[in-house]
Amino acid sequence: MEKKSFTFDEIKQKLVNYCVYQDRCHYEVEQKMREFLLIDEAKEDIMLYLLKENFLNEERFTRSYIRGKFYIKHWGKTKIKINLKQKQVPEKLIYKCFEEIDENDYDQTIRKIFDDYYSRQTGLKEYQRKSKTIKYLMNRGFEYERINDILE
């Protein structure tokens, strides 16, 4: 299929729309730019414009990503961190933005997921139910130490 060619301004507008629709990180915008044949200077110009006009804001993206993945998807911090690192978000920024998660909410979520999952494990010995549930929580990205603290 032949690539439709766009003017610089059309591409810029497409990338503005891409950022307005949902918060994006730099990495996602760079990936999106690959759809268009742009020289490096043009890519840089667009990036600077998006940053200057606040269409692109890595911290805002990170904060909303963390809130969404925790409060909506109920992921733990480990899983969130791994996914943000794949999007090339700096680790320092990730840790700074973890303040978006209320520590009490975090503990309550672990407790609730534990209780829900645990109650569905039938026909197993007590220790099997417990270890299976802990494994499930760890796969959701919750830290083993934190899970243990809450269960004690």
Score class of each variant (00 low, 15 high):
Asp45Tyr: 09
Thr133Glu: 03
His26Ala: 07
Ile80Ser: 01
Cys19Ser: 09
His26Tyr: 04
Asp40Met: 03
Gln86Arg: 14
Gly141Leu: 14
Phe8Ala: 05
Ile101Arg: 04
Gly141Ala: 10
Ile113Phe: 05
Lys4Leu: 06
Asp107Gly: 05
Met33Tyr: 07
Leu48Glu: 12
Ile94His: 03
Phe8Gln: 05
Phe98Gln: 08
Lys132Ala: 09
Arg120Leu: 14
Glu30Lys: 15
Leu137Gln: 10
Ser64Gly: 03
Arg111Ile: 11
Ala42Leu: 04
Ile46Pro: 05
Leu48Met: 08
Ile101Trp: 08
Phe70Trp: 13
Asp116Ser: 09
Glu145Arg: 09
Ser131Asn: 14
Asn83Thr: 13
Ser5Asn: 05
Arg146Ser: 07
Gln121Ser: 07
Arg67Trp: 03
Leu151Ala: 02
Asp115His: 13
Asn83Glu: 15
Tyr27Lys: 10
Lys130Phe: 08
Glu2Phe: 01
Arg140Trp: 11
Phe55Ser: 02
Arg140Lys: 15
Leu93Glu: 11
His74Asn: 15
Tyr136Pro: 15
Tyr18Ser: 02
Glu53Lys: 12
Lys125Gly: 01
Thr62Val: 10
Tyr117Leu: 07
Arg129Tyr: 03
Lys87Ile: 02
Asn139Ser: 12
Phe114Arg: 08
Lys85Ser: 03
Tyr71Gly: 10
Ala42Glu: 15
Phe55Ile: 06
Glu28Asn: 06
Tyr18Ile: 05
Ile113Asp: 09
Val89Glu: 04
Phe8Glu: 05
Gln22Pro: 01
Glu2Trp: 02
Lys43Tyr: 09
Ile39Phe: 11
Lys52Gly: 06
Lys85Val: 09
Ser64Pro: 14
Ser5Met: 01
Ala42Lys: 08
Thr133Gly: 03
Arg111Val: 06
Ile46Met: 03
Met138Glu: 15
Lys73Tyr: 13
Ile39Tyr: 09
Glu126Gln: 11
Thr62Met: 04
Val20Ile: 11
Lys73Gly: 00
Glu53Pro: 00
Arg34Leu: 09
Leu137Ala: 11
Glu143Ile: 13
Glu41Asp: 15
